[in-house]
């Protein structure tokens, strides 16, 4: 060793990094290990490795008892629906608000983006939903999720629109392109990275959200996965192997999306925080 001080410093750094990473990993390991154990072995909820043979039937049991197929489809519908609506509305609004910065449009942008900080008044919202006959409906939840995500997603895409040169718009207009075609055929394709980021974030957020269904969905057949896993936990709290299997299946989509789309998630979450 040429430089012993450097070496110990390096070692220390690596040790500290591991020390912080491990606690973040433990809960995930808990879920994975215990979902692969029998009821007796999982009762302790510890980090011992699952014994062979692995009881794979945990998953089939939980899919059947927890009615996971139904809630998976619900979650998928809510997430996909709000991703589509939110990305569509947010990009269209962000585009016009960024390109045509009149006084009123700047005010409307501020008004919309203020929603990032505002709390939702769920109690009064119930009144609005009942009036609109959206209470306890799947469409209502999708629209509600859209409304919740719109402020941040508009903010995210707005910053990106400014980077797309306006010369393109001018050229397209001179060639006789109308506003609708200009947006869909010229600008939207160039917004692809921002649109994907917004879509991924909306999907993650809506998949994990459970407050709105907790308030407004009375029938269990309409519950998304997060809420039904909580309900399942209430009924089978002694069967940690099943609860963990349920949690694992519920988290799998977000973990997959996280692994595949980490780049987009990080870039989306850092928007506005770092000068681009």
């Amino acid at each position: 060793m040429k430089n012993p001080k450097r070496f110990t410093e390096r070692l220390l750094r690596n040790l500290i990094a591991v020390m912080f990473s491990i606690p973040c990993l433990i809960p995930l390991l808990l879920i994975v290990f215990n979902s692969l154990k029998t009821k007796q072995a999982a009762a302790a909820m510890d980090l011992s490795l699952p014994a062979l043979p692995i009881p794979w039937e945990n998953f089939s049991v939980v899919i059947e008892k927890g009615k996971l197929a139904q809630s998976f489809l619900n979650s998928l519908l809510y997430s996909a629906g709000s991703v589509f609506l939110c990305v569509f509305f947010a990009s269209a609004a962000a585009y016009v608000m960024s390109r045509n910065q009149t006084r009123i449009n700047r005010f409307l942008y501020m008004f919309l983006v203020l929603g990032i900080t505002l709390p939702i008044n769920y109690v009064a919202l119930s009144k609005v939903l009942i009036t609109l006959r959206l209470n306890n409906t799947r469409g209502g939840i999708i629209l509600l999720y859209t409304a919740m995500q719109l402020p941040f997603m508009t903010f995210l895409i707005h910053g990106f629109v400014a980077k797309v040169p306006t010369e393109l718009d001018e050229a397209a207009v001179i060639d006789g392109c109308g506003p609708v075609r200009l947006f869909f055929l010229v600008v939207l394709p160039l917004l692809k990275p921002a649109v994907i980021t917004a879509g991924v974030l909306t999907f993650l957020n809506t998949w994990n959200e459970f407050t709105a269904p907790l308030y407004f969905l009375n029938s269990t057949s309409k519950w998304p996965m997060t809420l039904s896993v909580y309900n399942f936990f209430g009924m089978y709290f002694k069967d940690w192997n099943l609860v963990c299997a349920d949690i694992l299946l519920t988290s799998l989509p977000v973990l997959l999306i996280y692994l595949l789309g980490q780049k987009y998630i990080v870039s989306g979450m850092t928007t506005g925080a770092v000068k681009g």
Binding site: A92, A93, F111, L112, L150
Partner: peptide
Amino acid sequence: FMAGALLV
């Protein structure tokens, strides 16, 4: 173009 977002 802004109507959808603002309305919802």
